[in-house]
Each structure stands twice: as C-alpha cells, then as structure tokens.
Simulated scan of single mutants.
Amino acid sequence: MTPPPPGDLVDWPADFGTRFTVTVDTEEEFDWAQPLDSGNRNVTAMAAMPEGHRRFADRGVPLTLLVDHPIATDPRSIDILRAVVADGRSAVGTQLHPWVNPPIEEAMSPQNSFAGNLPAALQAAKLDVLGAAITKAIGIPPRVYRAGRYGIGPDTLGLLAARGYRIDSSMRARYDYAAEAGPDFGAIGNHAFRCGPNNQIVELPLSTVFIGAARGGGAALYRALGRLPKGRGLFSRTGLLSRIALTPEDMPLAAALEAVAVAVGEGVRVLNFSFHSPSLVPGCTPYVRDAGDLAAFHHWWDRVLGDLQRRGVAPASLDELIAGSACGSAAAASPAHAV
C-alpha cells in the first residue's frame, strides 16, 4: 500500500492534545502453530476480561473491544461485553475472522484468512452477519473495524463506508504480510488519515515505531535489512534499529518506553496500542504461556500507562476519536505528519 497524500492526514484539534487508545482483538482461542480451523470457537478466556477491564478502568483508560463472531454470539461473552461498555467510555467494534464467520463458502487457506482477498459479495455477507450479531448483543451498530490478520483489501473500505463505519484500524504500520498473500503496510506510518469513498473512513493504524541510533533510516533501511541474512537481528541486538509495535505481546518494556518517547517526539497525535484478549489467560497465546508471563504482561501495562500519564498523554475513547477526527480537517504537509 502507498502512503496517504499529506492532505489526507487528520489534523486533530489543538485541544485534543496527544492521546492514546487501547484496542483489544477480542477473539476465540486457537493453536497459533496450527492451520486455521472453522471449528475453533472456544471463548473460555473471556472469563478473564472483567478483571482485565478493571485494571484499565481503575486508571481511567477505556477499552475498544474489537469482537469476532464466536465472541458476538456467545451468551456469556455478550454479558461480559455489556458490563465492559457499562463504564460509559469503553466500546465494542468489529473484528472479522473470516474462517469462523458465516457464511463460510471459501476454502480454508492462508490466502483466504485475509478477508480482503475474498470476493466483495462474500466479504459483505460476512460483515453483515457479524454487524447484526454485534448490534443485537450491544444495542449499538459497530463504528470501528479491524480485519483479522490485518487483512484489509481493495473492497473493504467501500463496504465499511456503506455500513456506517467511521474508523478502520486494520493497517499495522510498517508490517508486510505480502509473503503470506496479505497486504504490505511497509510504507504506512503512524498518523491517522482519511481514506475510502469520499474519504469517509478515518484510518487509525496500529502504532509501530523505529527506535535505535539508525532509526532515521526508517522503513527503507528496515526493508533493506530484511534482504540480508540476519540483518535485522544484528541491527536490533546492537541497538542500531528495532521495529517496536505498541503492544505487550513480544515487545520488551524498555523498547516500548523508548518507542513511546520517539512517537511523541515525532508528533504522532494518537498512539494506538493493542493486545489479544486470550493473552489475559496463560497458555492461550504464544505471548503469555504461564503465570510469570501474565505478571510481566500486567507489569508492562502498569509501566507504560504510568509513563503516558507522566508525559501528559491522555486516553481517548472511541467517541472522542470520532469527534476529534470529525473536527480536524485534512492537515497541510509538515515534517511531523510525514508517512
């Protein structure tokens, strides 16, 4: 994908400040090392969400739970979702895992796990089924979307706009899934921008930051290192260049704190953090394998949220993001907004 033109970047209002949001890929459990299977619909890890939500709510941080079909149709999970949004600031949006989302007419394959690769009519049908389930469960149509596996495609934004979505968060800045038949976001930066038909959708990429002495080389250097045997690992180990996503999953705390400092210094107005809901239970994701990993997961958040508070970076709810992006006109080109 190509970077947005400077005129499409969101110019957040001055009084919006620098903010952050926490999005949660709220989904079923499955074995990450095995092929995707439409029969994987267990959602037992949702039992940990009330306590997970409380940890954020106690700090005044709303969550945006991006739920897929197994979650949106499970009675116990629905009760938990309703309790989360009862805090008045958290929200529920859509995450499309096509392999567990009816109608399932496609073959199970890596290519078809990226919803954007599916025919537009099938992708639309899946969106309608999931949107209806979420609306029935929560009473409010979803307004924010994320494609499972970040699998946005050429038809996706038009389908979202036609269904009243306001924000997409399917693009994972600086990541490339082309080798798996997915999209390439290597040229996408961290600034929100308008896209889709008549620029109706605000894209809020998942934040990914280059840190290290050679971070000025950015995406071009990182891509070049990928063509060298062990090039990226060497640069990372020597402190020259690391790619750090704003998530506790497989991202060291010290690197994440440095990434926050870099992002704020570069003028990123909304930092988009994320994690997977099954990571709240040991053994359900590769990132949290045991009780020690879970303790480290919570410690990561404690430190990062404390650092954000110290910097004056306040949390933003979905309502605040929608309102702020509606007020902000497309920005003029500036170094701070470069993508």
Rank of each mutant, 00 (worst) to 15 (best):
178 A>R: 13
164 G>E: 04
183 P>D: 03
177 Y>I: 08
199 N>Y: 06
178 A>W: 07
170 S>V: 11
176 D>F: 13
176 D>S: 10
182 G>N: 12
177 Y>Q: 01
177 Y>G: 00
201 I>A: 06
188 I>N: 06
165 Y>A: 15
165 Y>G: 11
160 L>E: 07
164 G>V: 08
163 R>F: 05
198 N>V: 00
190 N>D: 12
161 A>Q: 11
201 I>R: 04
164 G>D: 05
182 G>W: 13
194 R>C: 08
168 D>K: 12
170 S>G: 03
160 L>H: 00
158 G>F: 08
175 Y>P: 00
197 P>A: 04
173 A>L: 06
176 D>R: 09
201 I>L: 09
196 G>D: 11
194 R>Q: 12
174 R>W: 14
167 I>C: 04
200 Q>N: 05
163 R>N: 02
171 M>S: 14
196 G>V: 00
202 V>D: 14
177 Y>M: 00
181 A>D: 10
175 Y>C: 09
184 D>H: 13
181 A>S: 10
182 G>M: 08
174 R>I: 05
201 I>C: 01
170 S>T: 02
189 G>N: 02
194 R>E: 12
165 Y>W: 13
190 N>H: 03
183 P>Y: 14
181 A>N: 13
159 L>H: 01
190 N>E: 02
158 G>C: 06
168 D>M: 11
178 A>E: 00
188 I>R: 10
170 S>Q: 03
177 Y>A: 10
180 E>G: 06
178 A>N: 03
188 I>Q: 11
163 R>M: 02
199 N>W: 01
169 S>Y: 08
192 A>C: 13
199 N>G: 11
176 D>Y: 09
161 A>M: 12
170 S>K: 07
165 Y>N: 12
171 M>E: 15
177 Y>D: 03
157 L>E: 01
177 Y>C: 03
165 Y>P: 13
199 N>F: 07
183 P>H: 14
199 N>C: 11
185 F>A: 04
196 G>Q: 12
200 Q>C: 01
190 N>A: 10
181 A>M: 12
185 F>G: 06
167 I>K: 08
194 R>I: 13
168 D>E: 15
167 I>T: 06
157 L>D: 14
176 D>Q: 07
198 N>D: 14
159 L>Y: 00
202 V>P: 10
159 L>Q: 03
195 C>T: 11
190 N>M: 04
172 R>Y: 12
198 N>T: 04
191 H>I: 01
164 G>P: 07
191 H>Q: 02
179 A>N: 00
193 F>L: 02
176 D>K: 09
173 A>H: 05
187 A>G: 03
184 D>I: 13
195 C>Q: 05
164 G>F: 05
181 A>W: 09
181 A>R: 12
193 F>H: 05
163 R>Y: 04
160 L>I: 09
169 S>R: 01
171 M>Q: 15
187 A>M: 08
167 I>E: 04
166 R>Y: 02
157 L>N: 10
195 C>F: 07
196 G>M: 07
178 A>Q: 03
185 F>I: 05
161 A>Y: 13
162 A>C: 00
181 A>V: 05
170 S>W: 15
171 M>K: 10
181 A>Y: 15
179 A>Y: 12
195 C>P: 00
183 P>C: 13
184 D>K: 14
157 L>G: 09
179 A>H: 06
191 H>W: 04
192 A>P: 02
176 D>G: 07
192 A>N: 08
195 C>R: 05
201 I>T: 06
175 Y>M: 14
